Computed example of a mutant assay.
Amino acid sequence: MRPSRRHPLLVPALLCALAVLAARPTDAAEKKAPGDGGTDAGISAQVARLYEDAAVATQQYEAGRLEAEAQRAKAQRLEALLDRERRGISVLHEDLGRIARAQYRNGGDLPLTAQIILAGSPDQLMRGQQVFSQTNLAVNNAIEKSRRAEAKLAADEAEAATAWQSLEKRNVELADLKRGIEEKLEEARWQLQGQADASVAAGSCRGAVRLDQPEVQVTAPWVTPVETYELSAGFGSGGSRWANRHTGQDFAVPIGTPVRSVGAGRVVKVSCGGAFGIEIVIEHAGGYYTQYAHLAAVTVDQGDQVTAGQWIGQSGTTGNSTGPHLHFEVRVTPELGSGVDPVPWLAARGVPLG
């Protein structure tokens, strides 16, 4: 976009926007944590870090995009002010021409001796001199005002153009940074999935990967199993991939998405074979169990106590799965076949899904 002469005068607002966007997210993908280098724990940790970095980069990119849209809206509203200023300068130029013509008609171009000779009386001479002085003053004022207006317009447009170029450049940088992190994250996700598939094929679970999850205070006793999601196959729905009906609620999420325990409880099962691929089952108070299946990695061991919102694994597409998602079940026993619909069960605990 070329800013040229179509941008507003309120440049400070643009400069403030650039200051807000000055902080760049840490490109953690370029840093290796202890244990990185192809190990199971390393790739899981890398995915987790990149997942967080991608979220930060997306937030900053969206903030920059919204700020640019807001400034463009201001430009449209304030364009009228620039047009008015340009029209004012045009009027000043017309006034200068009119004053010059009036001065000529009133004899302003005649020498004083000629004016004395041509004057019919002293009064006429004095009146002519008074008009001449007023005309000269008006001309000088008009010229000075026109020069100031033109200089201000030029300075405002130049400063606005510079600010817009800086904002556009910053938004391009944010977009490139976001795209770069997402590309690294996608590559790391499939490396993680490859390791998970190898474990399932071998029938040997890799064990818990201890990840440093962010310090997020979860005050509610129940939460969704993933933070951001789209609901896909629901409880009881039909399909060729299920022997009878779908026994849980699917959450469509990318590989490597942190999976959370929906409530406090104890891990009673961690396995990595069969139709569910890598799965976790947690026992909660009240006689209910929750299952998390098709995972790419687990971060807990059997027997661990967990809290609501605690990371227990990373989503994937292991087992009988057509694509990356989390299969979530609520059961009255630890075993398959005792499931209840997770959507009303969570809603009754203050966690509506939508």
Rank of each mutant, 00 (worst) to 15 (best):
A28T: 07
G203Y: 00
P324E: 08
R24I: 03
I117F: 02
R266A: 03
A348S: 07
A198M: 05
E150I: 11
E159S: 14
S204P: 00
K178N: 14
A138E: 09
E94T: 15
R98C: 01
K169V: 08
T257K: 01
A55Q: 10
K178Q: 15
G180I: 04
V226I: 09
R148P: 05
M1W: 10
L192E: 13
G38P: 08
I312A: 04
V139P: 00
K269A: 02
E283G: 10
E173Y: 02
I255G: 05
A158V: 04
C16A: 12
T247N: 01
V298E: 01
L295F: 02
V281P: 02
V281W: 00
P225I: 05
G239W: 08
G108I: 03
R210N: 11
A264G: 15
G323D: 06
L177N: 09
L112K: 11
D301P: 00
Q302G: 02
R170L: 08
T39H: 02
Q115M: 10
E150L: 13
E94K: 15
I312T: 04
R127S: 06
R86T: 11
A275C: 04
E30F: 12
D156V: 13
H7P: 12
S271D: 05
F132C: 05
E168V: 14
V298R: 00
V253N: 01
